[in-house]
Design a binder for these strands. Structure first.
Lengths: 172, 172
DNA sequence: CCGGGCATGTAACGCGTTACATGATTCG
DNA sequence: CGAATCATGTAACGCGTTACATGCCCGG
């Protein structure tokens, strides 16, 4: 039995915030959840069609945005309560560093410098959404802040790790 | 063009440490790289067959372990030098927490407690390999230690984040 | 001698991306 | 009017997991 798709969760979740078109669902996922989730059109449209067939979402006419139905909201709660699928890890950076001897110290330092830059940029990118969510408040704010905090902690850990590892590889 | 598989990198990398059977490749990947990489038999055997056909690995007879050839080692260096594929993020825990309002505070605290336990266990699991690699030394040791350090930093960050977030959700 | 670990493979399946096709609307 | 963006979909493809099938060998 293959891993079950969690696309429905993401799509229903997006529609639970506000009714929107499939296109907008993708924008929302990219912009708001982009740091820990992604969906492509090839997933979103078939999923929306299936959800519509099951009565979890509806649109008043073929050109209107999708909106969540009552059963749809119940379905979302149900799916959220299921245990999160854990994806088998596949970290290409670590794979390369682990076999770093084959690659040479300078190339590894380059990888670490890239990772450091990425982590710093990511950390800076959390400032804006954090400020926006804090200012806006609302019942969803605490939960959004928790996911933002996760990103910040992860980014800071990556920064500390990369700096430390660069020093150990005889930072040039 | 679909994302390129990095299975070859992992398999050639494993064989660069020592000749071994396909079964042992999987054991090695699971035990040594398990925290940041995984491969299944369904990937390993076809990949080994393909690599053999291209002359990157060989076995003296059909029952012998696979070993890396000269071109195979060159191929590994080549593949390691390619930029790491970045996998689109899919973090089911964050997805659930982001829509935590639908799920309710208590269920979210349960998720965080689970995550905290996982992170603590993971952190403790790095102690043994760190000691082993440190004691053994060797040219590969610095690189292995870097990947272990990454796991430790990540785990500590997860612990701090989970504790902090539990407090914010009114830790009961 | 039989159960469990070692060992090799393959078939089926679902997931997700990418690319393509098409059309409407908006804005400069 | 032409380009960019919004919008909806589909087809093809590769990746990776899971499950199944098979056989060997060793220790109890």
């Amino acid at each position: 039995m293959a891993r079950r798709s969690q696309t429905e969760v993401a799509v229903l979740g997006a529609l639970s915030v506000a009714p929107m078109t499939g296109y907008a669902v993708r924008e929302a996922i990219r912009d708001v959840l982009g740091h820990f989730w992604s969906e492509s059109f090839g997933q979103i449209y078939p999923t929306l069609a299936a959800l519509e067939g099951e009565g979890y979402v509806r649109r008043v006419d073929k050109a209107a945005p999708y909106e969540l139905t009552g059963v749809g909201e119940a379905r979302l709660k149900e799916l959220l309560a299921e245990p999160a699928q854990r994806v088998p890890p596949r970290n290409g950076l670590m794979l390369r560093l682990f076999f770093g001897r084959q690659l040479g110290p300078e190339a590894c330092r380059a990888l670490l410098r890239d990772a450091l830059g990425d982590a710093r940029r990511q950390l800076s990118e959390y400032a804006a959404p954090r400020a926006a969510v804090s200012a806006e408040g609302g019942a969803d704010a605490p939960y959004a802040l928790i996911t933002i905090a996760a990103g910040e902690h992860t980014a800071r850990a990556a920064i500390a790790w990369a700096e430390e590892s660069l020093a150990e590889l005889g930072e040039s």
